[in-house]
């Protein structure tokens, strides 16, 4: 990930900033310009509380190069308490112990390194709650 691309995503990766439609209250993560429910275009910026449940998951055993040291690891689709879904690594547990419906919480982690001399890309991951 290039430094400018990573920098543009800081509000979501660091602070879990989502958009809440001012008209119908639907929450979007990441935020969007038009509400898919009511077509409203006014949004309030909110922060997700960081708690949710595993909707589904898989265990990665052959990964992209930058994650090769971490295999096997779990990646899940998480139903956050605010009603949005996001994709996240699920760490600090045996990947075989991950279950659908398992409560998880967000922690701030290093997601990847741009090689030995590049930037460190921080963001969110899930851990068992």
């Amino acid at each position: 990930m290039s430094s400018p691309k990573f920098w543009r995503e800081i509000p979501q990766r660091y602070r879990m900033e989502a958009g809440k439609c001012s008209k119908c209250g639907k929450v979007f993560f990441p935020p969007r310009l038009v509400c898919s429910s009511c077509k409203g275009q006014d949004f309030e910026t909110i922060r997700l509380a960081g708690t949710g449940r595993v909707a589904t998951y898989t265990v990665i055993r052959v990964s992209a190069t930058q994650f090769a040291d971490e295999v096997p690891f779990a990646v899940g689709v998480i139903d956050m308490d605010e009603g949005v879904r996001l994709t996240s690594q699920i760490v600090d547990c045996d990947p075989e112990s991950v279950k659908t419906g398992m409560p998880v919480k967000i922690e701030f982690r290093k997601v990847q390194e741009e090689g030995k001399a590049g930037i460190l890309c921080y963001g969110y991951k899930c851990v068992p709650a």
């Binding site: 971490e70 760490v91 997601v111 460190l120 991951k125």
Partner: peptide, 9 residues
């Protein structure tokens, strides 16, 4: 610390 943890996290 896990490999994805450091002073910042």
């Amino acid at each position: 610390p896990a490999p994805d943890q450091d002073t910042v996290t």
